[in-house]
Each structure stands twice: as C-alpha cells, then as structure tokens.
Simulated scan of single mutants.
Amino acid sequence: MAGPTHQPAPPPPARPPTPVDTGSEALAQALHSSFAIVRFLMLVLVVVFLGSSFFIIGPQERGLILRLGRPVGEGEAALLSPGLHWSFPYPIDEVVRVRITEIQTLRSTIGWYAVTPEQELAGTEPPVAPGTPLIPGVDGYLLTGDGNIIHSRATLRYRIEDPLRCVFGFGVGTNGGFDLAGVSNAVLNTLNQALVHAAARFTVDDVLTRNVLGFQEEVLRRFLELARERDLGIVVEQLQVESRPPRQLKQAFDDVVNAAVRRGQVLNEALSYANQTTNRAMSEAAALISRAQADRTRYLESLAAEARRFEGLLAQFERNPDLYMQQRVAEVMARVLTNVQDKFYIPERSDGKTRELRLLLNREPPRPQGAQPGR
C-alpha cells in the first residue's frame, strides 16, 4: 500500500512593484557623483601632500631634518648633502638649511666713536669741536695697557663649519631657514671680548704705530681661543683691526707721530752715515792690509834674493879674500864716483906703507869745446 505523497508548497504571491520616485533617484545619483569627486580630490590632496615633501639642498648648503624636534640621524649622518631629498610634511618634519660656504661679515660694536650709516658709507667722520669731551654713553673707547684711551674696531669675516653645533646651539628659524641672529650675537660678543683683552696688553704707541700687526694678531689669537672654548662652530677667513687716537686729541697725537717720524729719519740718517763711514774705514783698512801684505811679500822675496846673493859672494870670498875685496872696492868706487870729473885711485902698497900723493893745483883749466887758443 503506497504511502501518502507530499506536494510542494505553492510560491508566495508576487508583491506589487514599488512605484519609482524621480526625486530620490536624482538625489542618489548626485550623492554618487559627489562621493566620486570627493574621492578624487582626496587622492589629489594626498599626492600634493606627499609631493610637497620633496625638497632640494643647494650646492652651498647643508640640510637637517627635524622630526618632532629631533634630528633624523646622528653626527655627520644627520647632515644632508646637496641634492633632492624627501621628508614628511610639516609639522611632522621640519627642514633646516644652513649655508656653510657663505662668508658672513661682522664688525665689533665697542671701542669706536658714534658715526651714522651715511657717514660710514661716505667715509666721513662726525665733526668734533676742540675741547669737546668724550661722551662715554655715545662714543666707545678702549683702555690700553698704559692707561690711555683709543678707538679701535675689528671687522671679522667667517663661515659656518659645524652646522649641527650652530643649529642646536643658536636656534632655528620659523620658516625652516637657519636663524643667523643667534650665531651673530655669539660671535659678536666673542669678538668684543677679544678686542678688549688685546687692548689691555698693548701700549698706545704699539697699537697706533709701533706694533699694529702684533695687536691685530693678538686680537685674532684671543678670538680663536674663546671660539674654541665656546664651541662656536665657525671658521675665521679674515680679521682686520682699525685703531685711531681720540678725535679730541688728534693734533697732539699727530705731533707725537711727526716727532717719532722725524726721530726715525734722524736715526736712519745717522745709521746711514755710520754705515758709510764704517764701510769706508773697512775698505781703507783692507787696502792697507793688502798693500802691507804685498810689501811684506816683496821684502821677504828681496831678502831671500839678497841672502842667496850673499851666500854666492861668501863662496867667492872664501876662495880669494884679497881679490874679492879689490873687486868690491872697485865696484863701490865706480858707483860712488860716477859723476866726478877727475878720479884718483891710490891703492895700498903691498908692503903696507902709505903712498905719496902729489897734485898740481895750478894747472890750466880745461878749455871749452870750440874755443880758440888765447881767448
């Protein structure tokens, strides 16, 4: 007997279609388009946001990336070389650029009298009346080691050597650029202290005339010493120091300088005359010595020749003394009686007795040549 059969349940009746609302459909399409535009704009903003993080470090610069105020990297690794770099946008990262090859010029602010920028550019000085006192609050000055007052100022040319030290020691600008004000103030204070220190170690004459270069070298030495102690992170390219006497005493200092110049001229003339006299005396002495040496040599040679001649005569004398003596007497008499008209030579007798000499004194005088007899 067959079991009961199960028939499928009939499908539910179809729901009537919902009527289409034209306003809703338009709103849905507008929202869909707006979301697409928003997504596109967001994508563009992300690209622009990320693209703005690229930056370029110039050939004369070094860069630093500060991430939340701390440098990215340590030591030299934190310095960015010239070229293209990337960082997170501000305020996550901040890029600092430091010009390490740019020469900075700084001038001391103490020790110089008041002068306007226009007068400085024109190279003129403010007028000062005779007898006008120096105003300490306006005119700067320095005290020398001997208690005198001078005007002096130093001009320094330097460049940054250690960007890390400068950045973290003197601050960063608000626009990502390096703030030179902090470095300039530190260098200026150091320069002023070096100038005061050097002035106290020199006299007024040394600073103004006698040892100008030494004073400038002392300012540079003291500045470099203080710069190392304070770790300024700079390199000095050039330092020049200009010094002048007080303008109120300019005439007095000029008189002293003129006297010193005149003194130097007189000393130079005296030294020149002394050198000329010494050189002339040395030349004359050398000539006398040379002549004396020549005479000495000549006399020695003459004496040596005479000695050799006497040695030869000695041999002749030893062979025949009488003959030698007669020859010598004859030679001497011939030399002595060269200009005598009448010569009478009476030799000694062989027996040693004297000979008798008879002269006819009234003889006829010699007749001149060409004269006739009887005249």
Rank of each mutant, 00 (worst) to 15 (best):
V48L: 09
D342Q: 13
A304S: 11
I149T: 07
L337Y: 05
P4Q: 15
I289T: 14
H6D: 12
E269Q: 05
P4D: 14
F49C: 09
V212A: 01
P91S: 04
G137T: 05
L323Q: 09
L31C: 10
L134F: 02
E125N: 11
E217W: 03
V257M: 08
A334Q: 14
G3L: 10
L323W: 05
L180H: 07
P130R: 04
D205R: 06
V235C: 00
F88R: 05
I160D: 07
E61F: 04
L239S: 00
L143S: 08
E118R: 11
M42I: 11
T132G: 05
G140N: 04
R201T: 09
Q60D: 14
F344L: 10
T277E: 14
Y113M: 13
L239H: 00
A114Y: 08
L359D: 03
E311D: 07
R296Y: 15
G264L: 10
Q193K: 06
A154W: 04
L41E: 13
R319V: 12
E301W: 02
V38H: 12
M333W: 04
G214K: 06
A286T: 15
Q369H: 11
N320C: 05
I234P: 05
S302Y: 13
K250M: 15
V115L: 14
K343Q: 13
V266N: 09
P245E: 12
A285F: 14
E306H: 08
V44S: 10
A26E: 12
I110G: 02
I103R: 12
R107G: 07
F168D: 01
Y299L: 12
M1L: 10
R298T: 03
E118F: 01
T109E: 15
L45M: 15
G140M: 13
A194P: 02
D179Y: 03
V236A: 02
P8L: 11
Y90S: 04
I135L: 09
I160V: 14
G75T: 01
F178I: 03
V46Y: 04
G73H: 03
E217Y: 09
G75N: 00
T132V: 03
E225H: 06
V340T: 13
A330E: 14
V212M: 02
V38P: 00
L360R: 06
D295E: 06
A227Q: 08
S243T: 08
K353P: 00
D322S: 11
G182V: 03
L208K: 03
D295F: 11
L300C: 06
F170S: 05
Q7P: 08
V20M: 15
P373I: 00
A36D: 07
V332H: 10
R62Q: 15
S53F: 01
T190Q: 10
R244S: 13
T109F: 00
A2Q: 15
L361S: 09
A294N: 13
A315M: 10
R153E: 14
L43C: 14
V48I: 13
L357V: 08
V98M: 09
V207S: 01
